[in-house]
């Protein structure tokens, strides 16, 4: 590759990560995966129509395939790897496994980020709010039923913990 850029720094999961010698047209998804070794974000459509690559960018859930990586300097990026940094699954991750919301698992990391984002902003969503919030995350295996069950479980447990 001839068209490289001077290095830039990204703030990923609370750490400063250097990106060197990259092609400047690379998406954040590509850089996370191929340059920073964070394979949790998945690419399945490259056009924001599946949600598998969902990350949080300055607190917003966005498709990392549609973020020009070099434009994300100065932003806080949180990936699925940052949701359970010590390896212990988060409550959402645990509920996905316990409720059978994981089959092939390719959509799962993106959904996990989307559910965390939803419940951070709306701790007690109605089912239709859950469906709307997850309507950007395509799952081809489960038909969504067990995913809804997992979200309901987390909501109920968190509610119990609050009261």
């Amino acid at each position: 590759m001839t068209e490289t850029t001077a290095f830039y720094e990204l703030n990923v999961n609370g750490s400063r990560r250097e990106v060197r010698d990259s092609w400047i047209g690379e998406s954040l998804l590509y850089v996370l995966r191929e340059r920073l070794g964070l394979m949790g974000s998945k690419g399945a459509c490259e056009q924001g129509e599946c949600g598998s690559c969902t990350v949080m960018l300055d607190g917003d859930a966005v498709c990392s395939c549609l973020v020009l990586s070099a434009s994300a300097v100065g932003s806080e990026i949180l990936t699925v790897e940052g949701l359970a940094p010590n390896g212990e699954p988060s409550d959402v991750q645990r509920a996905f496994v316990d409720q059978g919301a994981v089959q092939c698992g390719f959509c799962t990391p993106g959904l996990i980020v989307a559910v965390h984002h939803l419940l951070d902003n709306n701790p007690d969503p109605t089912m239709i709010e859950v469906k709307e919030a997850l309507s950007g995350n395509i799952c081809r295996c489960t038909g969504y039923g067990r995913i809804f069950a997992a979200v309901e479980t987390v909501v109920a447990v968190r509610k119990g913990a609050r009261s």
């Binding site: 998945k42 990936t79 699925v80 390896g87 699954p89 496994v97």
Partner: peptide
């Protein structure tokens, strides 16, 4: 029983290696 998948947690955490994740 509704035994749980052995690969479930890894898949939720992004640690499960899909064929596209190998380098």
């Amino acid at each position: 029983t509704s035994a749980l998948r052995p690969d479930g947690v890894a898949k939720t955490q992004g640690n499960f290696a899909f064929s596209s994740d190998f380098q």
